[in-house]
């Protein structure tokens, strides 16, 4: 019984994915169908149309295996090794630098805004 519930949950999540893909095709959207499915599922959960107990186990199972599902895509780099020769080192450095900038900026604004938000809240309470 538990197993059937599990399968049904995954089918329901896959159903949202298919709806997302169909909508993307019909309206020729540039956003991936999976993201449309994500937004739809989020809206259904938030509005309580769909109880979370209908997807929780299936979602957690899929998410726990996400690193496995990524392997076939990453193995594909074997066809592109030549890109990392010579100038490729600079490309990798560039990716690292860009990531560090995004990392520091993300934290910086939160550190600034976070503090004012808390102070405002404290004032409000006082």
């Amino acid at each position: 019984m538990k197993f059937i519930k599990f399968i049904l949950q995954m089918l329901l999540i896959t159903f949202f994915y298919i709806i997302g893909e169909v909508l993307q095709n019909i309206f020729r959207l540039s956003i991936p169908g999976s993201i449309i499915g994500l937004i739809l599922l989020f809206l259904f959960l938030s509005s309580k149309i769909l109880p979370e107990t209908w997807v929780n186990q299936g979602a957690n199972f899929l998410l726990s295996l996400m690193p496995l599902f990524l392997v076939p895509a990453t193995v594909g780099v074997m066809n592109y090794f030549h890109i990392f020769h010579g100038k490729g080192i600079l490309l990798i450095m560039g990716i690292i630098v860009s990531t560090c900038i995004v990392f520091v900026a993300s934290a910086f604004v939160c550190e600034k805004l976070g503090k004012t938000t808390f102070k405002e809240k404290e004032k409000h309470l006082a």
Binding site: I13, G37, L62, M66
Partner: peptide
């Protein structure tokens, strides 16, 4: 590709933690 195909539904599943 059988594993790769599961990425789509997994992205949809991210709605759950977000919720």
């Amino acid at each position: 590709k059988w594993l790769h195909e599961l990425l789509g539904p997994t992205v949809v599943a991210l709605a759950f933690p977000l919720y």
